[in-house]
Each structure stands twice: as structure tokens, then as C-alpha cells.
Amino acid sequence: MTSPAPSRAVAEGALPDRAPRPRAASRPSPLPRFGRLVADWLPALPLLAFALLLLVLPAARLLNDTFALRAGGYGLGNVQKVIDNPVDREAIRNSLSLGALQATLSALFGVPAAWLISRMRVAGRATWLALMNVAANFAGIGLAFAMVALIGSTGMLTHLLGVSFPATSSFGGVNIAYLYFNVPMFVLLTLPAMAVLRDDWWEAAQVCHATRWQFWRRIGVPVLAPFTAAGWLLIFTWTIGIYAVTYALASGPQSVKLITLQIGSTLESSVFGLERAAVLSVLLMILAVVSTVLYRLAIRRATRWL
């Protein structure tokens, strides 16, 4: 098997968006229609039932609980209550700006990094890939601890440089921690796309007396933009949904308010009623669905050049 074009690997590795595979052996079956239907699906039924019960049903239940009113019937009462709650409004605003800021910063650092790494020789590229893998693997509670040990009020770098960093439980502190895995993630996502921009194109542009600026303006940016957009969308969605690091850093009362933390604390205390968790969960679900659709559009546009 020849190795697939790198950006197809992005499309395939990231989302199940693959080309139809050749139809498997369709042998004529003597079974009646219903029997054939069962035979076609039977080995997959346990998995499908399992996924239905543990993934689809909970999502449906959240949708139901969002609109089901305590007094009976359906309406927007629960949604209205969340909109009217200043804490929830703040959490939604913070989560959205955190996602957008993280995705933008990741692209800002990630695109040049991926470009430089893609143009390295084999040894350098392998080293950097390993480093990116290291960083991307260092998430969760451990990262929160390491960040506090580094830039907390008595952290290593705080002493070394004699400066005070933003508190790790603040918006700024959470941003510093998140970038640690989002930048490598973005690099790993866009690295294959950098191979799409072929060196011949730069040579061809030079033959036509194009300047470096013109090359990037007319060829580089238009080709890479959809890949960057796709990476931006994934980082945005994933960032909003992160829970572990966030819980460790910002579950205190004075910390930055975020949607996932509100969901978690509502489920644990149940003071406000679980509808609140349902409404916020559905909001995250809607964001995920919208950005997945946009992601697919971006990937389709990006792979035009292959």
C-alpha cells in the first residue's frame, strides 16, 4: 500500500470522513429478506446498542431535560433561567472567549512552528515531533500541578525572574496552562498540511519573478488557510470542553468561571436543579455540532489542492 497523502491523513485521522471503500463480497444469499437483514447487522448490534445506550440516549436526555419544564410540558423556561443567571452568563462568556483566544493563539504560534518543523531535516523533525508529543501528553491534573510549581506564587520561574505571573486560577493563568497542550496539538494537526505547499511552487513563483511576499499572499496563505481554519475550529471546540486541568486550577470560589466547571459543580451539589446542567450541556453540544460541520466544510475546501 502506498502511503496516503498527508492531508488525507488529517481528514481521516481526525474525523471519519473517508472515501467509500470497495463493496465487500456480496454473495447471493438464500435467506429470506429479514434473515438477510439480521445477518448483515448481527455482529455489529452489540456495539450499536452499547453506543445508543451510553452516548445517544444521554444526549437525547439532556435535550429533553433542557426543554422539559418542572411543572410539566415543554418550553424555554430553563433556558431563560440560565440566561438570567449572572454567574452562568459570565461562565458562557469566559468559555467562549477562552476557546476563541486559545484557538487564535494556537494558530499564531502553531502555524509558524509547523512550517519551520516541516522544513527541517529528518533528525530535527523527529526531535520536534517527539517534543510535541511530550507536551500534548502532559495534560490533566499533572499539568495543573506543574504550572503551579513553575509560575505559581512560590513557583520556580517566579523566583528565578522575580516577576509575578497571572494567578493560575485566573483567566490569564488558565490561558497559559491551556496553551501548553493546544499549541502542540495545533502543530500536530497542521503539520501534514505543510507538505501540501510544495517546494516546486516556490521555485515556479521565483521563475515568474514573484517576491516572497507575493508568493505567500497569492499561494501560501490561500492554500494553508482552510487547514488553519480547520485546526482553529477543533482547538476551539476541545478547549471549551476541557475539564481536568480546569477543575484542578479553577474550582475555587474566587477562580474564573467556565461552563464545564459549572456543569460539574451543579451535578455534585444539585442545589440549582439539574436542568441547569442540562441547559449548559446542550449549549456545549450545539457548539460541538456547529463546529464539526464547519470543520468538515473546511477540510473539504482544504483538500481541493490534492
Partner: peptide, 21 residues
């Protein structure tokens, strides 16, 4: 299609839904 759920939707949300069910 089903695999998109754990891929895109936060696991906190999956947990919340399961808890309710």
C-alpha cells in the same frame, strides 16, 4: 456517525447525560 459524539462533545457532557439517565 456515532463516533463523532465522544470526538466532538465534551466528556463532562457525556457524564452529565449519563448521570441524568
Amino acid at each position: 456517525t456515532v463516533a463523532v459524539i465522544p470526538f466532538a462533545i465534551p466528556w463532562v457532557v457525556v457524564g452529565a447525560g449519563l448521570q441524568l439517565v
